[in-house]
């Protein structure tokens, strides 16, 4: 794997960290506001179903989590578990799973 690709992974890690900082704040604020009147599935779905904005927000959140988490797991695999190149493939698999499961969940509450 080239140094250029590794440098890009680092850039992707930093950029997704910035996105996550924003998304986590919005997500937590929404939770705090939403539970004030009691938490029900019906209330959540009323907010999200048919909402392009929430769909776009959580899709971005999911993709950013998958990229950021995957790159972090790759580094942990290399430095702490001594996995070498295999760490990249395992991390890519985890990232792909996170995207698939996460987007499926977004579709479930928005569509």
């Amino acid at each position: 794997m080239s140094a250029r690709f590794q440098a890009r992974l680092w850039v992707a890690q930093r950029v997704t960290a910035m996105i996550l900082a924003f998304c986590v704040v919005v997500h937590l604020a929404t939770i705090i506001l939403a539970v004030r009147g009691g938490l029900t599935a019906a209330e959540i779905l009323a907010r999200t179903q048919g909402s392009m904005a929430w769909g776009a927000f959580y899709s971005t959140f999911v993709v950013a989590v998958a990229i950021h988490g995957g790159i972090g797991l790759r580094t942990i695999g290399i430095e702490w578990l001594g996995m070498g190149r295999a760490a990249g493939w395992v991390a890519a698999l985890v990232s792909a799973s996170l995207v698939a499961l996460g987007l499926r969940a977004v579709v479930a509450v928005v569509a």
């Binding site: 794997m1 140094a3 250029r4 590794q6 440098a7 680092w10 290399i78 430095e79």
Partner: peptide, 12 residues
């Protein structure tokens, strides 16, 4: 810059 980038370099 190529020599110092990546997993063996500054990004680690």
């Amino acid at each position: 810059l190529h020599a110092v980038a990546g997993d063996a370099g500054c990004h680690s």
